[in-house]
């Protein structure tokens, strides 16, 4: 058995099993997130929400998926066929790819690489391509406008997100995600770096094109923005990709600021709960906030969105970065 596991085929089999162990629960969570979002928003708006398919409407995600599969995929005659189909695939694949480095428990990452946080940042910054390519390949005014908005928006918010990540890295002294979590054993980073935590959370909303920053979709003025021409499975891939991206961003927030798989207090009733459960709980808390924000705030005006990114978040994160460096240096807390 050991000989098989150490052979190259064995390693391949283990990797595939690990990948499935991450992706299958992720997709189930994504499916139920669509249901949870509708239920939570319904509760906040004093409605009932989906309640017909199955008990409490619990089978609604599967009904939706079946409906998407049955429908016809329409490709506009003026569209660039190859890129039109490639765009939703790219969105979905990127949202799945990033999970390779997320540590769900100590040593529970598929690839525990040295530059894990850079890998995450790189993959999340590629998400914009799915949207731009979709907008361009659709050969439609609305789609293109949505794509242009989204490109400017995501590039702007990445800058401040980068500075937030650098601030966290200063406190950790490593780019490895497992070590970032282990560095939070004494205190989770959202307490000492609270302003950066807020900036990071709002930037994740902008990165995932979620309300109140969903100008790329803007159903009231751009009908559905970059995905106006998409139908059936191509649309479903965008939809799944968006929710998987939200989970990814929540996992990033959890890893960087909320102590990953660590229990809130390292004491008896808390550390009986296994690490992955804590991780899932924290991710779900972040996801709930995503929905909460959506149900609460109206959409930003575009110039205010840009102002917030460049004139508010960027200066604050820059100053906080320098401040953190000074404090760490003067107090002698700089990790080696």
């Amino acid at each position: 058995m050991d000989a098989f596991l150490n052979s190259s085929i064995g390693i391949l089999a283990i990797t595939i099993a690990q990948t499935l162990a991450i992706l299958v629960p992720l997709l189930i969570f994504v499916a139920y997130m669509t249901y949870a979002e509708r239920k939570i928003m319904a509760a906040m708006q004093m409605r009932v929400g989906p309640n017909v398919v199955g008990p409490f409407g619990l089978l609604q995600p599967f009904a939706d998926a079946a409906k998407m599969l049955m429908k016809e995929t329409i490709i506009p005659s003026g569209a660039n066929r190859a890129l039109f189909i490639f765009a939703p695939m790219l969105t979905f694949i990127l949202a799945m790819m990033a999970w390779a480095v997320i540590p769900v428990n100590e040593g529970w990452a598929i690839a525990d690489i040295n530059v894990g946080i850079l890998y995450l940042f790189a993959i999340s910054s590629l998400g914009v391509y799915g949207i731009i390519i979709a907008g361009w390949a659709s050969n439609s005014k609305y789609a293109f406008l949505g794509a242009l908005r989204s490109a400017a928006q995501m590039v702007s918010y990445e800058v401040s997100m980068g500075f937030v990540i650098v601030t966290v890295l200063l406190c950790v002294g490593s780019l490895n995600l497992t070590q970032i979590v282990m560095a939070q054993k004494t205190v989770w980073f959202f307490i000492p770096l609270f302003p950066m935590f807020i900036i990071f959370f709002i930037s994740t909303l902008a990165e995932t094109n979620r309300p109140p920053f969903d100008l790329a979709e803007g159903e009231s003025e751009l009908v559905a923005g970059f995905m106006v021409e998409y139908s059936a499975m191509t649309y479903a891939l965008f939809f799944l990709g968006e929710y998987a991206n939200m989970f990814l961003m929540s996992a990033m927030t959890t890893t960087l600021f909320l102590g990953g798989w660590l229990a809130p207090i390292d004491m008896a009733p808390f550390n009986w709960v296994p690490g992955p459960l804590w991780f899932i709980l924290k991710v779900c808390l972040c996801m709930f906030t995503f929905v909460w924000v959506r149900a609460t705030f109206p959409r930003y005006r575009y110039d205010q969105l840009m102002r917030l990114g460049w004139k508010v978040f960027l200066p604050i994160s820059l100053v906080w970065l320098v401040l953190t460096a000074f404090v760490l240096k003067l107090a002698g807390w700089l990790p080696v």
């Binding site: 790189a122 914009v128 391509y129 490109a151 400017a152 990445e158």
Partner: peptide, 10 residues
């Protein structure tokens, strides 16, 4: 890829 080429493509 994440920044320069996005603006270039844009």
């Amino acid at each position: 890829v994440g920044a320069v080429a996005v603006l270039f493509l844009f």
